[in-house]
Structure formats: structure tokens, C-alpha cells
Write a protein that binds this DNA or RNA. Structure first.
Lengths: 145, 145
DNA sequence: ATTCGTGCAAATAGTTTGCAGCAGA
DNA sequence: TCTGCTGCAAACTATTTGCACGAAT
């Protein structure tokens, strides 16, 4: 999605919640749009000077607006990425167990189909309504070997 | 696995690291063997009175010994389960986005095959060596609807 | 005996929040 | 203009650690 349209979309989503699209929120969206992997708070702050509390607060708001998505890896750092609704790329993650790095990985149709089937079975069995999924491949990245 | 053999296995794994199989460690293993879902620290402490610090410390040791495994869901509570090497059940998780509950879900062969293929492709593409994976179905549990 | 584990309390790390001043629609 | 956002600092929560005592080999 072009950068301009991206901001338009974000603006709309925020407006729907009576939230303003302020400079710091725009900053956060820019940073996340510029990268191809989920970013930690410190990475975000390294890219755009911004008080931590504003970063946290705005990421919450952007999360509620469906603009950003929180990724949980294995270390205890939150990572954030643009939501798939905005990035348009359904993907999963590679997670390095040594350094904690997280990289994006494109989804495979076959995997998605198998997953949909498993989700259906799980729902029937346990009265659980599946709305989303998360697939992570764990291992070691090239820097850690 | 029978309870007695389980403790034997745990004892061996701890011994391999020059660690003793003490009463509190045995307690932790028992609690985790008695349940079918990953447990938070507070759930564990509710089941067996034990100082928090001992629980945390021993879960680290049991983790290093490959006896327990830490499960990361979406809230910021660590959850622990018996490792698959000991439980013998390869499984994935259902995670409720409302209450944070985590339940076990048996793995499906088809899903595993599709995943193995995706893992191979990812490794080739990114110089990433895949050693494990994690699949979670997110949604809402029966209690939350 | 000597090494390792325990329990308490204090420390730490990441994240959240109260409040006074500032800015966007 | 008026409601909501910002920035600072203090608060909070989950987890980790230092240290002196106790237990296991």
C-alpha cells in the first residue's frame, strides 16, 4: 500500500474511535511501515525520538484501532508490527531462540489450508471459536551460528 | 507415562546436570503432570504451597533439564507445562483472547506435514535453522461467550 | 564436610498511570 | 475552545537475585 493511502487508512480507523492522528502516532506508523519485522519498543525509540510513555500509550491506541499488532516471541519484550489489514501480507514468524530475533515469513497456502481444517476440528471439539492463528518457526538465525 | 517412570526420568535429567531432585522440584513436576494445560505461577502456587522465588528458580532449572517448557500466550504471564519429551504428546494450543486461557490441542498429522515443508522452505530462504515450532489458535473459549 | 537448595526481602525490567500543561479538530 | 494528547516522574507487576541458613550426598 502506498504510504499516503496507508496514512489515510490509519486516520480513518482512528477517527472511527474519536482519536486524533497526531504527529507521534504518525511517527510510529512510519517506523513500522519502514521495516519488515516486528520491532521492540527500544528499536522503535531508536528510530524516532519519542518519550517511552507516549510510545506505549499510542501503541495501545493504535492496537485498539486495528492499526498495529502486538507480537509475542519468547523473550519478554513486546514487539509491534503493522496489522495485516493494513500491510496486506498474511505472514508468520521465524524466531531465533538464541538472540530472540523475529523475522517475517510468508504464509504458504498449503499450511493455511491444513490449519483451517485443524481449527475447525478444534472448535467442534472444545466449544472454542477460532478467529485467528499464530505460527512460529523456532530455531537459530544465521547470525547466531 | 506412569508417574513413577516420570519421576525417574526427571531424576536422570537433573542428575545429568548435577542437580538434585528435591521435594519442591518433585512438587512442581507433580502439579504439571496433573493437568492438561500450561499453568501460570499463581496456579502452581495455588496447587502446592511453595515460596514464589523457589518456584521461579526451580522452573528455570527444570527448564534447563528439558523437563518443563515455558509457554508464552498473549497476556504477560508465563505458563509452564511438562516438556513433550516427558509428556509424549506433541500438541499445540488454543488461546482465548478474552480471558487469556490456554488449552492443549492435539497435533494433526496433516498440519505437521505442511509445517515441515514450510519450515524447510524458510530455512533455505533465510539461512534459518528450524528446530521447533509453535502453533496457536486464537479465539474465544466457551466461558467467554 | 562441602556443595547445593531454600526462603526471605530487596532489586530489577518492562510497562502503566496521575497530573499539569500543550495541541489538534 | 475544548477535549484529548503529551511528557515527566512515580507506581505497578512479574520476575530475578543476594545472602545467610538448612539439607542432601
Amino acid at each position: 500500500m502506498a504510504r499516503k493511502q496507508l496514512h489515510e487508512q490509519v486516520g480513518l480507523r482512528l477517527a472511527a474511535l474519536d482519536q486524533r492522528y497526531t504527529t507521534s502516532r504518525r511517527s510510529l506508523v512510519e517506523v513500522l511501515a519502514d521495516t519488515d519485522r516486528p520491532m521492540t519498543i527500544s528499536e522503535i525509540l531508536a528510530a524516532r525520538a519519542l518519550p517511552q510513555s507516549s510510545a506505549y500509550r499510542n501503541l495501545v491506541v493504535l492496537g485498539e484501532a486495528g492499526v498495529v499488532h502486538r507480537v509475542v516471541a519468547t523473550d519478554d519484550l513486546s514487539r509491534f508490527e503493522l496489522s495485516e489489514a493494513l500491510s496486506g501480507r498474511h505472514h508468520h514468524h521465524l524466531i531465533c531462540g538464541v538472540c530472540g530475533m523475529v523475522a517475517d515469513m510468508d504464509a504458504s497456502p498449503r499450511l493455511e489450508r491444513a490449519l483451517a481444517e485443524a481449527a475447525k476440528a478444534a472448535g467442534e471439539g472444545a466449544g472454542f471459536e477460532v478467529t485467528d492463528h499464530r505460527i512460529d518457526l523456532m530455531g537459530s538465525c544465521s547470525d547466531c551460528r
